[in-house]
Design a protein around this nucleic acid. Structure first.
Lengths: 110, 110
DNA sequence: GTAATTGTGCGAAAATTCTCGAACAGTTAT
DNA sequence: ATAACTGTTCGAGAATTTTCGCACAATTAC
């Protein structure tokens, strides 16, 4: 009945340093970018090649820092960005970070 | 004659994850906010109560990540934000982070 | 029911970061 | 030159983060 229960910080409780730290890890930044593109995704899509416990570690950190919302669906877990909450809390932040990540991509060698 | 020499990454070489990591540390974020307010400041102002080696550690990390520019002046060292370079590299990023930090301040108890 | 699948929690090891004292180098003042 | 002052470097220890195997819980398929 209760697939699983995940704790999420209230929007007002989202802390800037923790968000920045969550986004500062290349792997997690990549996950966030994928979430921005695809919307809600199956957790496995965020890192099919990763050991499960490693994947759980990163998704949990993103969740605890207030960046993503996680919900259990059957035996899978679905993840989506807390875009609106982040926009309310830190207007423009997620957007500029995502744009910055895109622009960094366009540099080939660098 | 040569007061001291500091290495700085080229603007194009500034990496997003490193910038986010630099800003994710509360102490460094506080330094950056002070730099945004005051412009170029004496390094000691960024943390008068800190051990000098700790202060050097953080200013070096900010410099190596491309967030600040450091120059020696006599026996002191002066630090300023690389606002334009960051704006060129990651438009809007520094501004939104600073705004977010301000808005986080206004919350009393949190 | 059993088996297969998916995610979580635990624990430990590796890597990184943070802190800071001590010795050192460069600058300024006397 | 001597002394005072500022920042850097080195080193080590503490704290944190990252990784990941393994056992476990929950769900689905058979």
């Amino acid at each position: 009945m209760s697939p699983r229960s995940y704790e999420h910080p209230d929007t007002e409780a989202i802390a800037l340093p923790r968000v920045l730290f969550a986004l500062s890890e290349p792997l997690r930044l990549h996950m966030v970018r994928m979430l921005a593109e695809r919307g809600e995704v199956d957790s496995i899509e965020l890192g099919p090649e990763l050991p499960r416990s490693t994947l759980t570690h990163h998704t949990s950190l993103l969740r605890e820092s207030g960046v993503v919302f996680v919900r259990g669906e059957g035996r899978k877990c679905l993840i989506r960005l807390r875009g609106e909450d982040l926009e309310d809390r830190f207007p423009g932040l997620l957007g500029t970070v995502l744009s910055a990540a895109e622009s960094a991509d366009e540099e080939p060698g660098a």
